[in-house]
Structures are given as C-alpha cells and as structure tokens.
Amino acid sequence: MACMNEDGQWIVLMGLLVAVGLFFLALIINQSALVGQTTAEGVLEFPKNDIRDLREAVFDYVDEFDHEEDTESKAVRDDIIAISLERKNAVVNFSVGDPEDISGRDLHPITIHYNNGVTEYDETVYY
C-alpha cells in the first residue's frame, strides 16, 4: 500500500457518509412505525370500552334491583361475573351498599373490581 496512489480515498469516505445517512433514515422510519404500533397496541390492550360498559351494566343493575340481595339480583350478578370470565377473560366483581346521603341525594356506594390479567381496575362510585 505504501506506494499506492491514495488520492481517491475521499470517494470511499463519501460513500461511507452516504451509507451512514441512509442508515439513520432507516432507523427513523423504523421508530415512527413503532410509534403507530405502540399507540394502536396500547388502545387495543387497554380495556377502556369494556370497563365503561361494565360500569353501565352495574348501574343498570342498581336501577333494577337497588341494593337488595335476593335470588333475582343474585342471578343477574352471577350472569355478569360468569359471562365476564368466560367470554371476556376478565375477573369481575361488584357490590352495592346501603344508600348514603351525598350532598342531598341518596346514593349507593358501588365498588367495582375488574382484572383481565393485563389491566386491573378498582373503583368506588356513588350512584
């Protein structure tokens, strides 16, 4: 090499720079795809609509049965728990307490528990 003409090495160097530039572009495109993927997966994985729907189902239950425990209300409660487990793979439980006076209204304290293995949700809501 010692006696070789090295004047052309800048061509190699420029080639290298272009290659590095392309590499960075590829990385950026890769990352942007990940942004879309993580968002979509986050949305799919987080059971926002399931939890909302469960809350409304529990509110419907309270509208219907108040806080009384009888065979009918127990059956509906068992329906929600059993179908959640079987079809939604979610452990669900809820209980309705005696009405309390909350700023002039008689509201039932409801505790809702939801766990689908990825997301766990607990709430005490007055309805």
Partner: peptide, 22 residues
C-alpha cells in the same frame, strides 16, 4: 443493520384493528 432496522409495515401495527374496534 439487519438486527435494528426491521421495518414494520402498517399491517403489523394493528392500526386497522384499533380503528375497527373503536
């Protein structure tokens, strides 16, 4: 290059699923 730049296609990203589910 191969180990870091596995480019995702939009099909892999579950976006149509997310839109449909919503």
């Amino acid at each position: 290059v191969i180990s870091t730049t596995s480019v995702y296609t939009p099909g892999d990203t579950h976006i149509p699923d997310m839109q449909l589910e919503q």
